[in-house]
Computed example of a mutant assay.
Amino acid sequence: MSKVTIYSIAEELNVSASTVSRAFSRPELVKSDVRDQILALAERLGYQPNKTARRLVTGVTGAIGLFVPDITNPFMPPLVRAIQQAAVERDASVLLVDAEEDSRAELGLITRIAGQVDGMIIVSPRSASSVIKQAVGRKPTVLINRVMDGVPSVVCDNTSALREAGGHLVELGHRTIALLRGPSASWAAQRRSEAVRIWARKADVALIELGPFDASFDGGRAGAEAFAESGATAVFAFDDLAACGVVAGLSDRGLRVPAHRSVVGCDDVLLARVLTPSLTTITAPVDDLGTTAVRMLEEALAGNDPEPIRLPGTFVPRDSTGPAAS
């Protein structure tokens, strides 16, 4: 059997080879009835467009660049998977780059990957807005969990859920509560801290701020020491990984959770559910964050300007919070 090409399809349908090519690369330029005939015949004959050749002709790579600050953070793999699945549905591939929690590397990494893809999805970058804009240049870009003027973004808004978590702690009798602040360069950490501060002022509880600490298990262990000595009976950790470190650090000091101290995390990663005790936390809509970011990037690639989107987190009480110790 001879190889199926755009020329053999064109000959059978009595159209030009350029029309067949456009049916795959620029379908909006081909009449719908002609396009349908071309695609139907191509599917019947098992024709697969040569993406490399298409890229050379159109300059379109069919690839999305995905930047993450630290792939080892448990929040990242499910998000990467959601983005990958949404991209595959649009016949796009994903080129992943990990900064390994090194903000100094962000400019170079983003600049390098931006030149190889059609558009960028950047997750929780630590660098200043001017650095991010310099890195992406004119490349269509969507941010996840970071807001920046002039750049489309989708974020998880935990304000209401954190307020609900605070009310849960008050109902359990906690009146002095610690806040373990996350990385100082993290936009999400700043917003979470501010949400807890506003709640604490309105709830008339004593809030003790500690840190900042790294968004890591070791960061949480370091925070546990400060928490244990603070006089607070409950703590908001920046994220679930740090919260797991807090639980371990408290255990090293003979303090059990929730008998002696209560701990609240954020994100609801797998660790939050398998930890003993299971972690009271805020569930982030990870799948929606990923699919929404891909859809917004698709709009940006089409020349549109997507509006920023906020998706709410959900408070989930579990076993790491209990009555305040007397």
Rank of each mutant, 00 (worst) to 15 (best):
G231I: 04
R253D: 06
V274H: 08
A284V: 08
V247L: 13
S230P: 05
V257A: 01
G223M: 03
T314E: 14
L289P: 13
G313A: 09
F236R: 00
T314S: 11
E229D: 11
E225R: 11
R295F: 09
R221D: 01
F238Y: 15
L250N: 08
R273V: 10
V264N: 02
L271Q: 09
P308M: 13
L311R: 07
V246P: 02
L255W: 11
A224N: 06
A224T: 04
L271G: 00
A284Q: 15
A224Y: 05
P285M: 11
H260D: 15
D267I: 08
P317T: 04
A300N: 08
D305H: 15
I309P: 07
T276W: 14
D240C: 02
G249A: 04
V264E: 02
L297N: 07
E225N: 02
E298W: 07
A272M: 09
D252I: 01
S251T: 12
L301R: 03
P312G: 08
F227T: 01
P277G: 00
T233D: 03
M296F: 12
V316M: 12
L241V: 02
F227D: 03
A248Q: 13
G303V: 03
L255I: 13
L271S: 11
A259L: 12
D240V: 03
A302R: 14
P285R: 08
D252N: 12
R295D: 15
S251R: 14
V274E: 11
P317R: 05
E225V: 08
P312C: 11
D288P: 08
P285V: 09
S278Q: 13
A300F: 13
T291H: 13
L311E: 11
A300M: 13
L250I: 10
G245H: 05
A228P: 04
F227C: 00
L297Y: 10
A248N: 11
S251L: 14
E225Y: 04
V286I: 15
V235A: 05
A234Y: 06
P306R: 09
G303P: 09
R318E: 00
D239N: 15
L241T: 12
T281Y: 08
V247T: 09
